[in-house]
Design a protein around this nucleic acid. Structure first.
Lengths: 145, 145
DNA sequence: CTAAATGCAAAACGTTTGCATATAG
DNA sequence: CTATATGCAAACGTTTTGCATTTAG
């Protein structure tokens, strides 16, 4: 939180109550993958006068600052995911095609793959997006009942 | 093309001129990552009376039949990518953050990673999406000029 | 005090849908 | 002949924008 405040100030962005409330909501829901609408509704509890447009603008700002990652699981909605402090790379996701649950994987499993990309394609990797679609542990068990 | 026709018939879908024209456009632009609008404009050259809605409906149908993959690079648009014949998995992409070029990687580099996912998370992988963001060969060279 | 940020409503955007008409099988 | 597919326009949900007003620094 403090780190984020400093980051805003250092680039001469203002720390408004709306922005603070939005960041707080994101921190309180680190595990989730909130849409802009979700964030809006949650922030409204803390700061009822906030407008949806401000939430969009704040989320875009945080996205530029690499505080959050904007992701898209293929339903028509963008979701926003807080980056773990100091995380070099975006984490991976497991999306269950049955129940829709999303599991996060913090570990970076792509080290070797990135080396191949760098050397064989001479592509300088800055970041990645990796999502697996399949059936989660829970749904596998339920199917076998 | 023939394979796709058979696949349509086998599930008692009709092979209309519009669908044929759409598939032809996709075949002619295998390398590209066309949006629905792109496809619409290209199909219109061949079959001017076609409607945008039909293109959407056809692309969705082809998506269900696993003839194309629907992808999203984070701009607000869905793109449609022809699956290579017999391809088990979706291919990977290298997106250049400077020039926007998209390179396809046919090889499946995720074999080992998927094994880890299956065993450690007990998640049964059906498909994956992997995109690297970075700087392509060409742009690296131009930056060093 | 002033540039930056906000709230609101309207507009824009990609996509989907209802319905009357046309057509592949 | 009939179920399926089409074209059109209207509807949809998400995101962006213009503008007058407020506010953090």
């Amino acid at each position: 939180m403090e780190a984020i405040k400093k980051q805003l100030h250092s680039q001469s962005y203002k720390l408004t109550p709306q922005r603070e409330a939005t960041v707080r909501v994101l921190l309180e829901h680190e595990e989730d993958h909130l849409s802009a609408e979700d964030v809006y509704l949650l922030v409204k509890d803390k700061a009822p006068e906030i407008g949806l447009a401000t939430v969009y603008r704040t989320l875009e700002l945080l996205s530029e600052l690499k505080v959050v990652d904007k992701i898209n699981f293929g339903d028509g909605v963008s979701r926003y995911d807080l980056r773990k402090e100091g995380a070099e790379h975006f984490h991976h996701h497991l999306v269950c095609v049955e129940c829709g649950s999303v599991t996060e994987i913090e570990e970076d499993l792509l080290g070797d793959v990135e080396k191949i990309i760098e050397s064989r394609w001479n592509f300088h990797v800055k970041d990645h997006r990796l999502t697996f679609h399949g059936i989660c542990d829970k749904c596998q068990n339920e199917n076998n009942k």
